[in-house]
């Protein structure tokens, strides 16, 4: 039996009502004041960071230093690999959660979300216990000459661990939004499941998939706690940008600020890209 996805009907959205202008009561003033404080909590520190970065720290010089360049390079490479791996592993997971009913589905759903609520340091420790030299998986691997903990691979695994839920959540919602009748019609037109998935399901879920990947990338790029536990802080091998900030703070605050400004700029770009994708997704159809 086909389940029909509810269709959005623009005619059914209620018109926005013009709110009557009443004199501003004290209670209302308080609401505005609290909202302003919340905004300031985000804007003020970021504002100071950017201001100091622009006026005092020599961002150009900092960026060309081998120390900062190494960290930026490592961060970009590891996070790109992590996102790629998350997409490869997370897409089937999200599809199964969206389309199939199987025993233990609710449990899988909860486990997927676990890294979001788990402190990253705890996740890093757990990874270390599993994949460290004494761990049940790390031990045999070490015996075969493969070290995982405190290597670049550990950085990627730590990033995957914390970032995967962001992609899987979004991808699942994207798959659920695809009208199942389209997939049914595709199958009556001679398309085997794999072709239906490639030609119908993925293209229609693409804005959600891309949005999820971007969010996962942002999370991977900022990863700190799990990385420092599981991969350590070795320049050139496991020292990503957040870890480099920690080290730089002890020696040269300006280098730390420079890296922080670069991270903030990337984050802002990601946010804009994400909003753009969401907008494109809603306009495409």
């Amino acid at each position: 039996m086909i389940r029909f996805a509810a269709r959005k009907d623009p005619d059914l959205t209620p018109p926005t009502r013009a709110t009557a202008r009443a004199p501003l009561a004290w209670s209302q003033l308080l609401v505005w004041l609290l909202a302003a404080l919340a905004l300031a909590l985000v804007l003020a520190p970021v504002g100071v960071l950017v201001a100091r970065g622009v006026t005092q720290a020599d961002i150009g010089a900092a960026l060309t230093s081998p120390f900062v360049r190494g960290a930026v390079q490592l961060s970009l490479v590891t996070s790109a690999i992590a996102v790629l791996a998350i997409v490869v592993l997370g897409t089937p997971t999200a599809y199964l959660l969206a389309r199939r009913r199987f025993p233990g589905r609710a449990l899988v759903d909860a486990v997927i979300d676990l890294p979001i609520v788990l402190p990253p340091v705890v996740g890093g420790l757990a990874l270390l216990l599993l994949l460290g030299r004494q761990g049940p998986v790390g031990g045999p691997l070490a015996g075969a000459g493969i070290d995982v903990a405190f290597t670049t691979a550990a950085v990627v695994l730590a990033q995957m661990f914390v970032a995967a839920p962001f992609y899987i959540r979004a991808a699942r919602a994207g798959f659920e939004s695809v009208d199942q009748r389209l997939e049914a019609v595709s199958s009556t037109l001679g398309a085997r499941p794999w072709r239906t998935f490639r030609r119908i399901t993925v293209p229609l879920a693409l804005p959600s998939l891309a949005g999820g990947a971007v969010m996962a990338w942002a999370r991977a790029l900022g990863e700190f706690g799990a990385t420092i536990m599981f991969a350590g802080n070795v320049a050139g091998r496991t020292q990503t940008m957040p870890l480099a900030i920690l080290e730089a703070m002890e020696a040269d605050a300006n280098a730390a600020i420079a890296i922080a400004v670069v991270l903030a700029a990337i984050a802002l770009a990601i946010l804009i890209a994400f909003r753009g994708l969401a907008l494109a997704g809603s306009r495409a159809l």
Partner: peptide
């Protein structure tokens, strides 16, 4: 050949 109710054309 199957034509479903309200057609379900592929929107993309």
């Amino acid at each position: 050949g199957y034509v479903v109710q309200s057609y379900a054309l592929f929107p993309h």
